[in-house]
């Protein structure tokens, strides 16, 4: 552990923060290429943690390891005390219990860069699909809930449209509503504004800002530095598959210690 990590852990204990998401010694290789080289961090309940770094630094891969869209090569991840069901296979780790994984995934909400709305379903069908199929919620309840969520993200008028009839910003707001419909414990955002036209970034960030304000636990991979600085409780700067620097936004953006972080911020700010 670096000294800053120690300080932070002390700070969190002192403030009664419970570690909600814990990532320990995470490694991920694609073939011979090691993308994540031992990353450990945690996120407390109601915390917003931003993962920053140049492209290729491994931030999206870390996020995708948290809900096992990528299987880590080594390491441990636990969510609210439940370890992700992984065991050692012949080549790296494999999922040991698919049912347990589905249960954990249902508690993690993922918002993708490319929205990934289901193209054959209307907006409303997209939002009720998870609650009905996975949580077993009665359809009328799911619809009532979905309509409230769509109203909240400002898409209520489009509920019978198909995804391809919506703008990127609207699609991403629907994707957020779809994720919220599952009542997730942690929200994972994988560069949610990177595929958007500039004029649509604001509407999506606005929704995310509201979510942070209501105390959601969020892990955000983003290139929106202003947003990260404003809403994050903790910022993690990644460089070549390792955590180069970690701390409060004021420390990372105001007084970065490492040369990599300084260079990165000089480029993007």
């Amino acid at each position: 552990m670096t000294s800053s990590q120690c300080q932070l852990a002390r700070f969190m204990r002192a403030n009664g923060h419970k570690s909600y998401l814990n990532v320990e010694g995470l490694h991920k290789s694609f073939g011979a290429l090691e993308v994540i080289k031992g990353v450990s961090f945690d996120a407390g309940e109601h915390e917003v943690v931003s993962l920053l770094g140049a492209s290729g630094s491994g931030k999206s891969t870390i996020l995708r390891c948290i809900n096992l869209l990528e299987t880590p090569t080594r390491g441990e991840i636990s969510i609210d005390g439940d370890k992700l069901p992984l065991k050692q296979g012949k080549k790296g780790m494999i999922v040991s219990d698919h049912r347990a994984l589905c249960v954990i995934r249902a508690r993690l909400g993922m918002v993708f860069q490319q929205f990934n709305l289901w193209a054959h379903m209307t907006v409303l069908q997209n939002v009720i699909e998870g609650p009905v199929q996975v949580l077993g919620l009665p359809k009328d309840q799911a619809i009532a809930k979905a309509e409230a969520l769509l109203d909240r993200v400002g898409i209520a008028g489009k509920k019978d449209n198909y995804p391809s009839q919506l703008s990127g910003g609207q699609q991403q707001r629907v994707a957020i509503a779809r994720t919220l419909a599952m009542d997730p414990k942690i929200l994972l955002f994988d560069e949610p504004t990177s595929a958007l036209d500039p004029e649509m970034v604001g509407e999506v960030l606005g929704v995310m800002r509201d979510l942070a304000a209501e105390g959601r636990t969020m892990i955000v991979v983003t290139h929106e530095m202003g947003f990260a600085r404003e809403v994050s409780d903790k910022v993690i700067f990644l460089h070549r598959g390792k955590i180069a620097e970690e701390g409060t936004p004021d420390v990372i953006f105001g007084a970065p210690r490492t040369a990599e972080c300084q260079q990165f911020l000089a480029k993007v700010l």
Partner: peptide, 27 residues
Amino acid sequence: LDKGQMEAAQSVGMSWLTAMRRIMLPQ
């Protein structure tokens, strides 16, 4: 099909079979 369709289905907690039945095969 785009890989993201399956990933989105799995990330809401659908099993592979449910994802195939509800998301992948209809498309």
